[in-house]
Each structure stands twice: as structure tokens, then as C-alpha cells.
Amino acid sequence: MNIEQLKYMVEIGRAGSLKEAADNLHITLPALSQSITNLEKELNIMIFHRSRRGSVPTEEGHRLINKAASALQKIQEFTDEAEAYTNTMNGEIKIATYPGPMEILVNLVTEIKREYPNIKACVYENSTEYIIDKVLEGEVDVGFITYTEKEEKKYRNLVFKKLLDGHMVVAANKQSPLAQKNLIKEEMLVNQPIVLYNDKYIQEFMTGFNAFPFDILFTTNNVDTIRHTLENNTAINIGFDYAFKTDAGLSRSNEYVVVNFAPPHYKTYSFGYFYNANNGLSRIIREFLSRIHRTLENDNL
């Protein structure tokens, strides 16, 4: 028996099927099935009832899964305790984010590095889909994205923590007629050149309009390009409101304004972070997330 098998047990119990658990764990179905079979042989007990409908824990399996979850938690506590005996924290911070909070995250990483110079840090910026994949693959510890209840239900082995409520807005140069509007209605977007950040939520939001497709000038993953486009009054931008509050390039320009959508297109989203429940969180990551919460609370975002 090994730690990986304990993780496999817990994930199968959570997912309800070997196939879904294998997908969540990013291992092959035969490898997962064989690992659990070997564990059952070693313990001389059946942990799961397997059928076409899924994998359901036996009565004994339920107890063992709960014990396994507790054991994994204790192992994490052991690691944290060992680190606490040193005079400084070690480890690595690997995070990925949607562009909006990049400056905040970089500032916090810099702050922690000053206090704990032995840690290593990697910060990536990309789209929601990319970030989810990297967390699932274990290449990133924590991802910062915009999400809905759909993602929480779809990725059951991911733990989501909300930081802010947000919604879609239109950003327009002050010289644009849209800048004078109190609310943006769908018909106002017709014949307007639009630049979009390349993110699946923004793309899904755009398809919710009856008049779609609009005049999409281009999509980009470069926030500076979006800012230049707005400042030059080349196009309008549709994106998340928090990006214009937290992103350094977008929030510090006085050349454009942000306007809310009128119903039914005023829709709220959650912005926050998520991590893989199978991997847990190291002591340094928990410290980093604690500072994120305090920073956002102090900034009243």
C-alpha cells in the first residue's frame, strides 16, 4: 500500500466511477483499476462494488475511504509541521492567472520572497482553459480564474474558493458614443468594432447575443494591446469588470470608461482560485492565499 493508492481510493469515492476518477487523476483507466485491485488483494477486502453504473464503496470501503482521507490530511500536517521547525519557509509557489489580478499576485510573490528567500516562484498568465488543464496536470498549484457553478460541478476533484463577484462590462474610449450611455443594450453593439481577450467565458458570453457575430476586430492574450486599442478609440472591449480594477495597464488609464450591460446581459460570475484536492496545499501556498484574501479585503475590491 502506498500514498498514491490512498489518493486513488478517495478520488473514486468522490467521483463515483473508475473512468471519471482516472480522468480526474490523469492516469489510464487500466492503471487505476489494477492499482485498486492490487490494494484489495493486499488488504483481502473488497473496497468498491463495480458495475456498468459506476463504482460504489462497500460498507467496509466507506470506512476505509474516510480513513484514507484522514491519513492524507495527517501526511500534509506532518509535512507542514516539519517545515515549521525551520527558521524559514521553503518550497515553491506555482500559480497561473487570468490577466486581471497579475499585478496583485506579482506584488505578493515579491513580498513573500523578501521574507522567505529560499522559496521559488513561477507565475503564468493565460486563458481559463489553459489554467484548469495545468492545475489538473499538477504543473500549477493554484489557478486564478473566473468561473460559474458549472465548473464546480464538472471538476469535482478541484476545490474552488470565491474571492470576488464580477460581471461583464463594455470599455469604450471617452470619445465613443457608448461612453455616454448608462447601460449597454445589445443593439448598441451592432457595427461597433470589438476587441476581446481570448478566454472561453468571454466567448460564451458573446454567443448569448441574438445579433452575434458582431464586428470582432480581433482576439488577443495581450492586455497592453487591448489598452492601446481603447486609448486610440480603435475598438471597444468587452470583458470582466474586475480586470479594469486590478490590472495595472487597464486600471491606470483615464482614456476610457467602463459601462455595465442592461438586463438580460448583466450576468454575474465568481472570480477566485482553485486547486487540486488530490494534491493539497503546502504551507507556503496557504500563506500566499491568506495574503490574497487580506489584500482584496483591504482594497475593498
Rank of each mutant, 00 (worst) to 15 (best):
residue 1 M to W: 05
residue 2 N to I: 06
residue 2 N to A: 07
residue 3 I to T: 13
residue 7 K to H: 08
residue 8 Y to H: 06
residue 11 E to G: 02
residue 11 E to C: 10
residue 14 R to D: 11
residue 14 R to H: 12
residue 17 S to L: 04
residue 21 A to M: 01
residue 24 N to V: 02
residue 26 H to R: 13
residue 27 I to C: 12
residue 28 T to H: 11
residue 28 T to M: 02
residue 28 T to D: 07
residue 31 A to E: 12
residue 31 A to S: 10
residue 32 L to M: 04
residue 33 S to R: 02
residue 36 I to R: 01
residue 39 L to V: 12
residue 41 K to P: 00
residue 45 I to S: 12
residue 46 M to L: 13
residue 49 H to A: 13
residue 51 S to T: 15
residue 51 S to P: 08
residue 52 R to C: 03
residue 55 S to A: 15
residue 60 E to D: 10
residue 61 G to K: 07
residue 62 H to A: 05
residue 63 R to C: 06
residue 67 K to C: 13
residue 68 A to Y: 04
residue 69 A to Y: 08
residue 70 S to T: 13
residue 72 L to V: 02
residue 76 Q to P: 11
residue 80 D to S: 14
residue 81 E to L: 15
residue 83 E to I: 04
residue 85 Y to G: 08
residue 88 T to S: 05
residue 91 G to L: 00
residue 93 I to M: 07
residue 97 T to R: 04
residue 98 Y to L: 04
residue 100 G to R: 03
residue 100 G to W: 02
residue 101 P to S: 09
residue 104 I to H: 08
residue 108 L to H: 07
residue 109 V to K: 01
residue 109 V to L: 00
residue 111 E to M: 06
residue 113 K to T: 03
residue 114 R to I: 07
residue 116 Y to M: 05
residue 119 I to Y: 10
residue 119 I to M: 15
residue 122 C to F: 12
residue 124 Y to G: 14
residue 125 E to P: 06
residue 126 N to R: 13
residue 128 T to Y: 09
residue 129 E to N: 15
residue 129 E to P: 02
residue 129 E to K: 15
residue 131 I to K: 00
residue 131 I to F: 09
residue 131 I to G: 00
residue 132 I to D: 01
residue 136 L to Q: 11
residue 139 E to W: 05
residue 139 E to V: 10
residue 143 G to V: 01
residue 150 K to Q: 14
residue 154 K to S: 04
residue 158 L to W: 05
residue 169 V to I: 06
residue 173 N to P: 02
residue 174 K to C: 05
residue 178 L to I: 00
residue 182 N to H: 09
residue 182 N to Q: 14
residue 184 I to E: 09
residue 184 I to F: 08
residue 185 K to N: 13
residue 185 K to P: 01
residue 186 E to M: 05
residue 191 N to S: 11
residue 191 N to H: 15
residue 194 I to Y: 12
residue 195 V to T: 15
residue 196 L to Y: 03
residue 197 Y to T: 00
residue 200 K to P: 07
residue 202 I to D: 04
residue 203 Q to G: 08
residue 203 Q to A: 11
residue 203 Q to Y: 11
residue 203 Q to F: 10
residue 203 Q to M: 10
residue 204 E to C: 07
residue 207 T to H: 00
residue 207 T to L: 08
residue 209 F to I: 01
residue 212 F to A: 09
residue 213 P to I: 05
residue 213 P to E: 01
residue 214 F to T: 02
residue 216 I to R: 08
residue 220 T to E: 10
residue 221 N to C: 03
residue 224 D to L: 14
residue 225 T to A: 08
residue 227 R to W: 06
residue 230 L to S: 01
residue 233 N to C: 03
residue 235 A to P: 09
residue 237 N to H: 06
residue 243 A to Q: 07
residue 243 A to N: 10
residue 246 T to S: 12
residue 247 D to T: 01
residue 248 A to W: 12
residue 250 L to G: 04
residue 250 L to M: 14
residue 254 N to S: 15
residue 256 Y to S: 04
residue 257 V to Q: 06
residue 260 N to Q: 13
residue 262 A to R: 01
residue 264 P to L: 13
residue 266 Y to L: 14
residue 268 T to K: 02
residue 273 Y to T: 04
residue 276 N to G: 05
residue 277 A to S: 15
residue 278 N to Q: 08
residue 279 N to G: 06
residue 279 N to F: 05
residue 280 G to R: 03
residue 283 R to G: 11
residue 284 I to M: 09
residue 286 R to Y: 04
residue 287 E to P: 00
residue 293 H to K: 13
residue 299 D to Q: 10
residue 299 D to I: 08
residue 300 N to S: 12
